[in-house]
Computed example of a mutant assay.
Amino acid sequence: MLYWALVCLVIAIVAGVLGFGGIAGTAAGFAKVLFFIFLILLVISLVVNFMKGRGPKI
Rank of each mutant, 00 (worst) to 15 (best):
I13R: 14
K32Q: 06
I58D: 11
G25I: 05
G53S: 05
L9V: 00
L18W: 09
V47E: 06
G21T: 12
P56N: 12
V48F: 05
W4I: 08
V17K: 14
F35G: 08
G53Y: 08
L18E: 07
V48P: 01
V43T: 09
A15R: 07
A27D: 04
V7P: 01
I40N: 01
F20W: 11
I44Y: 09
A12S: 15
R54M: 04
L6M: 14
G29K: 05
A24I: 01
F36G: 02
A12G: 12
L2Q: 10
G25E: 10
L42T: 03
A24H: 01
I23N: 01
Y3T: 12
L41W: 01
A31I: 03
F36C: 06
A28Y: 06
A31H: 06
V47H: 04
G29F: 01
A27V: 01
V43D: 02
G25M: 10
K32N: 02
K32D: 04
K52V: 07
F36N: 08
L39Q: 05
M51Q: 07
I58N: 11
T26L: 15
A5D: 08
V48S: 11
A15I: 03
N49H: 03
P56E: 12
I11K: 10
C8W: 09
S45A: 09
G29S: 06
V14M: 14
I13G: 08
G22W: 14
L6G: 05
P56V: 11
F20P: 00
F50W: 13
L46W: 01
F35P: 00
G22P: 02
I11H: 13
M51P: 00
T26W: 11
G53N: 04
A31W: 07
G25C: 06
L2M: 12
L42A: 02
G21Y: 12
S45T: 07
A24P: 03
G19Q: 04
K32V: 12
M1F: 09
L18M: 13
K52N: 07
G55R: 07
G19Y: 02
G55M: 00
I58G: 14
I40C: 01
I23H: 06
I58M: 07
I23F: 15
G29M: 07
F38R: 00
I44G: 04
A27I: 03
F38W: 03
W4E: 14
K57Q: 10
K32C: 10
C8E: 15
V14R: 11
M1T: 09
W4V: 07
L6W: 11
F20G: 05
L34G: 03
G53L: 04
G19R: 03
G19S: 02
L41Q: 05
G19C: 03
G55F: 08
